[in-house]
Design a protein around this nucleic acid. Structure first.
Lengths: 109, 109
DNA sequence: GGCGACTATATAAATCGCTTATATAGTCGG
DNA sequence: CCGACTATATAAGCGATTTATATAGTCGCC
């Protein structure tokens, strides 16, 4: 089981490479500011995830009109497997929550 | 944000009081053996959750044909709020995963 | 008659990830 | 000139889970 932060980061990287700060912005945009990790949590998590083989630093360098400090990350095959597996697990939890009437279901009570 | 284990336990208690071991069995039945916590994790989590006001020990005693060692737990109003809020958060994550094509959507590619 | 598996609760030690705080540094707007 | 934003990074501390262990009754199997 991957951690919630690991999952959120993998989800942010699922549709394209991003740099650390850009990951935070992607999470804010998709899930709201409350879901976004602090910089401390993010960069630590990226290091750990690189060691675990879930992401790699991409060789791409920042373009001339981008901030030169940026470091880009890419999801690996293992990372994609992990985010798929975890997504299925969460979908099962949400389905259980619906069965127990904790969430509204479309066209239902 | 509640922890994954806290969420799973609250979900198991959402539709009725259960004793500790019964919570494990409920999780196994709904989500598979891999999702079930160890006894160590469970009883520690129940203590913590009782301190946080998410569950209370119910005054109900085991019936004559039940194991006398059982201790029953009930979800509180705060616990129910917490599990609802977290369910909505997870549903948003799953929806994002679907948008990023990490999960099949019913009648869709 | 003993052994393993199941039911049932509980605690201790250790690990590990996150939180909070801090550091550096350039750019932009008021 | 100061605060906010972009951007990455590390340190110290906290807290939850993992793993291991303990106790104890019942049941089925060999």
């Amino acid at each position: 089981m991957i951690t919630p932060l690991t999952y959120t980061i993998l989800l942010a990287l699922a549709d394209g490479d991003r740099h650390g700060y850009g990951i935070i912005k992607e999470i804010e945009a998709r899930l709201g500011p409350a879901a976004a990790p602090s910089t401390g949590a993010l960069y630590l998590a990226l290091q750990r995830m690189e060691n675990e083989g879930l992401v790699t630093e991409s060789p791409a360098l920042p373009g001339p009109d981008e901030d030169a400090r940026r470091r880009y990350y890419r999801i690996t095959r293992r990372g994609r497997e992990a985010v798929r597996t975890e997504s299925a697990r969460l979908a099962a939890l949400v389905e259980t929550a619906r069965q127990k009437k904790l969430l509204p279901r479309r066209a239902d009570a």
